[in-house]
Design a protein around this nucleic acid. Structure first.
Length: 196
DNA sequence: CTACCGATATTCT
DNA sequence: GAATATCGGTAGA
């Protein structure tokens, strides 16, 4: 087979991101159709984990495209990205939300007290529904978790806006989502600083 | 629906 | 010491 995945993911994050909308990520019995993503670049992007250079956490971002970058944050949540861009550019696309299209019973077990709409609505929820954690950091997306591209989104269905929860570079409209999808997460600006 | 708040590992200052 | 690519619970409109 021609390696469509590698070809596409070699492009910059800003180009890869909208192309991932509608793609399906499958892992451990659950499949999610992506409805919302965010692009993160490297050295030029203050909002990116890779902005200040390579750390143990971000090593995978600096590697080849086509792998999963999974990080642990807020002391309890995992978030997954598709590494893209040319080798060394440290670009990635955060998978923010999706619709569970297979294994919904399993996803419900992993996320009790959640409505079906909320099963993968948010980056940490999506990881929980797919049972993705740091063990999948660096995983090859052709082997698993498996990423299956669909056709490009229909013209006019992709919307863009600022990324969620960032104070850095709030002016960049690098969040992409499918219009009229109920599984798209609610926009939340960065948390204000609270006195300690 | 909105607003607040606590949990708490990793990274950065 | 403090911020963070978040979430779930609770309270209130």
């Amino acid at each position: 087979m021609t390696d469509d995945l590698a070809d596409l993911l070699g492009d910059p994050a800003i180009e890869v991101a909208p192309r991932l909308l509608g793609a399906v990520l499958r892992h451990r019995g659950v499949a999610v159709r992506l409805t919302e993503v965010e692009a993160y670049a490297g050295a030029d992007d203050p909002g990116s984990h890779a902005f200040r250079g390579r750390t143990p956490r971000t090593t995978v971002m600096f590697g080849p495209a086509g792998r999963l970058y999974v990080y642990f944050t807020y002391g309890m949540h995992h978030c997954a990205n598709v590494v893209c861009g040319p080798d060394g550019e440290a670009a990635a696309v955060l998978l923010r939300a999706g619709e569970v299209v297979e294994g919904i019973d399993l996803a419900r077990e992993r996320r009790p007290n959640s409505s079906d709409r909320d099963l993968a609505r948010g980056p940490a929820r999506l990881c929980r529904a797919l049972d993705v954690d740091r063990q999948q950091d660096g995983a090859d997306l052709r082997l698993g978790p498996v990423l299956e591209l669909g056709p490009p989104p229909t013209a006019g269905t992709v919307r863009t806006g600022p990324r969620v929860g960032l104070r850095q570079a709030p002016d960049r409209p690098w969040r992409f989502w499918l219009d009229a999808e109920p599984t798209v997460s609610a926009y939340r600006p960065a948390a204000p600083l609270r006195p300690r």
